[in-house]
Design a protein around this nucleic acid. Structure first.
Length: 495
RNA sequence: CGGGGCGUAGCGCAGCACGGUAGCGCGCGUCGUUCGGGACGACGAGGUCCCGGGUUCAAAUCCCGGCGCCCCGACCA
């Protein structure tokens, strides 16, 4: 390539090896938030709309969401849950029954106050989550221990009137699934909450190639109305954590509040134990910030809308028919092993290379007269941009293998990145040092379990919180305050 | 809700201190040459200068009042 456009490099510091891509988006290292925005919009995943805090998910972004959704939906069904659908609007009186829940969600509820031109007698909340309406309905349907467990899930949109919104990460309206279950015993509910958190881990790690920390949240960070909350937390490539899925053990809090009871085998009335768990379109934000680089997105093959893009290369109209014939043959040969797309746009190849890199397509196939002559194609890897000449007769096998390996390499890369942020801390100095001068780290160390201590750290570090408690057994004293440790915590700044 | 910034062509911006023909880059359209890492030339289309009021012969520019968006905090999947 000739001069890097927009690279801003001066003669003095021209690197030995110029990047093989051209920059059309802000650099990740210069401006992470700007980079994120550019990627989302220029890769055409989503865009802003005239509606405050609400985004439009464009076809490429939607295809990604569908792949994620389908993978998760399969797992939810395979673990015995059924999908169903509840109303979008929740009467205020229903919402008010669980005190802690109301207090937690009240500030961000949007209300419907009018029907047509007449004012409603009771205003209706646009669901911020559905525990309340589901509780109300299951009160009618749960009678006996024979009705339990109830294992249901809903795919829906919800609305939370957030102060500050960001594409995918925090929008006023977002899409998610919310699972809701009722069980005869505490142990069963515990098992359910654990099981679904594990499903989220599998989705994140095995489908999205995104390593996550799994664990309990602190009292400060738990879901309003839950006995306790667990989450998976992914570390973004700027070192900040992102809560990417949550699973709550609701105890009997909601069943008591909504007066849901069943008669057990001994003919005594009991309150069932509940769980709820959710994963939203936010996970797409996680995927972008976890894997993306200066050239744009990097899609994990298992959920990539397009896994292989074919770029036909020809000079003039006389070469076109031959090349296109070869291109279609390659496409057809790959159909059974990959989601393939042929880029037939009337643009130069270089334009297309950059465009598909921005969109994060794992493998690109370049196919021109020289390749047809030689009986191979050029396969280019999005992660390292290595070009491989692959003979046509081995292409399908090779592509299949490369996609599998790509998925694994992407995970390893993300894991190494996370490890580079990991700091073991035993003392307050070490903890504060890990976040000194706005630095991002993933600090791991003993903690006393005291909310006041967590809040004090948050204050002292301008925003560092405990993301999850790890399963490790605590030893020694709290790294933050020096009291006896009762847990082991991961601290980080979070989105 | 507190602090900061910004609203001018689809996008990014200049113009505004000092009022007087609305500009630049990218993108877009047509044609030609190009085509293996974002090509080039020629011609062209595209504007309630966020909205409302005021001052003035004259407002993108000055004054008053709104609205919207972005960023940083607090809150949150």
């Amino acid at each position: 390539m000739s001069e890097g456009k927009g690279a801003g490099a001066t003669e003095a510091d021209v690197p030995e090896r110029e990047p093989e891509y051209v920059e059309f988006i802000r650099r990740k290292s210069d401006d992470f938030a700007g980079w994120y925005n550019d990627v989302v919009r220029k890769a055409e995943l989503a865009d802003y709309t005239p509606v405050r805090g609400c985004m439009v998910i464009r076809p490429y972004g939607w295809a990604l969401w569908e792949n994620i959704r389908d993978a998760l939906d399969r797992m939810i069904k395979d673990t015995g849950h059924s999908n169903m659908y509840f109303p979008l609007l929740i009467p205020e009186s229903l919402l008010l029954k669980e005190a802690e829940h109301v207090e937690g969600f009240a500030p961000e509820v949007a209300w419907v106050t009018h029907g047509g031109s007449s004012k409603l007698e009771e205003r209706l909340a646009i669901r911020p989550t559905s525990e309340t309406i589901i509780g109300t309905l299951y009160r009618k349907w749960i009678r006996s221990h024979r009705d339990l467990p109830v294992l249901i899930n809903q795919w829906a949109n919800v609305m939370r009137w957030e102060m500050r919104t960001r594409l995918f990460l925090r929008t006023a309206e977002f899409l998610w699934q919310e699972g809701h279950t009722f069980h005869a015993t505490d142990e069963e509910a515990t098992e359910e909450a654990d099981k679904m958190l594990e499903v989220y881990r599998i989705l994140a790690e095995e489908w999205l190639a995104m390593p996550v920390l799994k664990g309990r949240k602190t009292e400060e960070e738990k879901f309003p109305g839950a006995d306790y909350t667990m989450s998976i937390e992914a570390l973004m490539s700027d070192g900040k954590a992102l809560q990417s899925g949550t699973s709550h053990h609701l105890g009997q809090n909601f069943t008591r509040a909504y007066d849901i009871t069943f008669t057990d085998r001994e003919n005594t009335r009991q309150f069932p134990y509940g769980t709820s768990w959710g994963l939203s379109t936010r996970i797409i934000g996680a995927l972008i910030m976890c894997h993306g680089d200066d050239a744009g997105l990097i899609m994990p093959p298992r959920v990539a809308p397009i896994q292989v893009v074919i770029i036909p290369i020809f000079r003039g109209d006389e070469q076109k028919p031959t090349v296109m014939r070869a291109v279609y043959e390659v496409r057809d040969a790959l159909k059974s092993v990959a989601r393939v797309h042929v880029d037939e746009r009337d643009e130069k190849p270089g334009y297309k290379y950059n465009d598909w890199e921005l969109r994060g397509v794992p493998l690109r196939i370049e196919l021109g007269p020289r390749d047809i002559e030689a009986g191979h194609v050029v396969v280019v890897d999005r992660l390292d941009r290595e070009k491989h000449q692959v003979p046509l007769d081995r292409l399908a096998d090779r592509v299949e293998t490369m996609l599998t390996e790509f998925q694994a390499r992407l995970f390893d890369r993300a894991l190494r990145l996370r490890e580079s942020f990991l700091v073991e801390v035993a003392t307050r100095d070490e903890l504060l040092e890990a976040f000194a001068d706005g630095r991002n780290s993933l600090a791991h160390g003993p903690w006393c379990g005291d909310s006041a201590c967590e809040l004090e750290v948050k204050e002292a570090t301008r925003g560092v919180t405990i993301r999850v408690l790890s399963a490790a057994a605590p030893q020694g004293d709290c790294a933050a305050c020096g009291q006896t440790a009762r847990a082991v915590a991961y601290w980080a700044r979070a989105y």
